[in-house]
């Protein structure tokens, strides 16, 4: 697709990648050994590669000067085709966001999409990027303690079979790691169109001592909440088919021992 970027087509300066060239299987096994490169620790994550505008190679972070360098603050786990990232990018233009996706073709699509958007809208979409990774195994390799302020788990693979429940991206054990990556007050957004999975995610979050539900009023005021259904490809599909969605949105709280 790279030969398309930069070519002038009537009305649009850069052609966006087309999904039909990036068809991928809907499921991917998160348990299998992966052989894609993974940063050894968060410090090894190459910011200048993902966010060249904010981290010009060789130079200092020109926005922040000598202050502590900018870090990824939002993580979209299982970002799929990247619809949410693109919308969030306009809403929070100064916040770095990273999409994580296990399926390599889908990741390629998002990569091309972001590059095309950057090329056709100079100065915009510089704050979003995507990595192909297994976030269930390697989240701590990307984010340090309390680094994130928002995490998104939207329309994850439901893994209906009971023996496959341990492949679900929300579980009591994995929430420990998400709580580690989230700052105090950070928010975890989950949404699904599968009622059974919705119940599962909610009960995991309710049972976890480091999370509490966000009140309805706060959700009303949060501009991000509206995007969960409107911006994601899966959300749009559900809306088209008149389906229902189930969301559980929780806040990271301090651990209090009774």
């Amino acid at each position: 697709m790279s030969d398309n970027t930069g070519t002038k087509v009537k009305g649009q300066s850069c052609r966006l990648p087309r999904k039909r060239f990036y068809r991928a299987r809907a499921h991917s096994n998160p348990l299998s050994d992966s052989h894609f490169p993974i940063p050894i620790c968060p410090a090894e994550f190459d910011y200048s590669h993902h966010y060249p505008y904010f981290f010009p190679s060789g130079g200092e972070d020109h926005k922040n000067g000598s202050a502590s360098p900018r870090k990824v603050r939002f993580a979209d786990i299982g970002c799929g085709f990247g619809g949410l990232l693109v919308s969030l990018s306009r809403l929070f233009p100064d916040t770095l966001m990273l999409g994580m996706e296990l399926r390599d073709k889908v990741t390629e699509y998002v990569k091309e999409r972001i590059l095309a958007l950057r090329a056709s809208n100079p100065g915009q979409y510089e704050n979003i990027s995507v990595v192909r990774t297994n976030s269930m195994k390697y989240l701590p390799n990307y984010f340090g303690k309390a680094q994130l302020s928002k995490m998104f788990f939207l329309f994850p693979d439901p893994h209906f079979k009971e023996k496959n429940h341990r492949r679900r991206v929300i579980s009591l054990q994995l929430l420990d790691e998400y709580a580690y990556a989230l700052e105090l007050g950070g928010i975890i957004y989950t949404m699904t169109d599968v009622e059974e999975l919705g119940d599962w995610m909610r009960s995991c979050l309710e049972d976890h001592p480091l999370f509490e539900a966000v009140s309805e009023e706060e959700l009303e005021a949060d501009p991000v909440v509206k995007l969960l259904t409107s911006a994601t490809e899966e959300g749009q599909k559900v809306a088209r088919n008149g389906g229902q969605t189930f969301r559980a949105i929780f806040r990271r709280i301090k651990f209090e021992e009774e």
Partner: peptide
């Protein structure tokens, strides 16, 4: 490295750190 709470039979959920290298 996980904080081992007093009521540890309820689970150890608070991660102190990951030692990665």
């Amino acid at each position: 490295v996980t904080v081992f709470p007093k009521q540890s039979l309820k689970g150890a959920h608070e991660i102190q750190s990951f030692c990665l290298g």
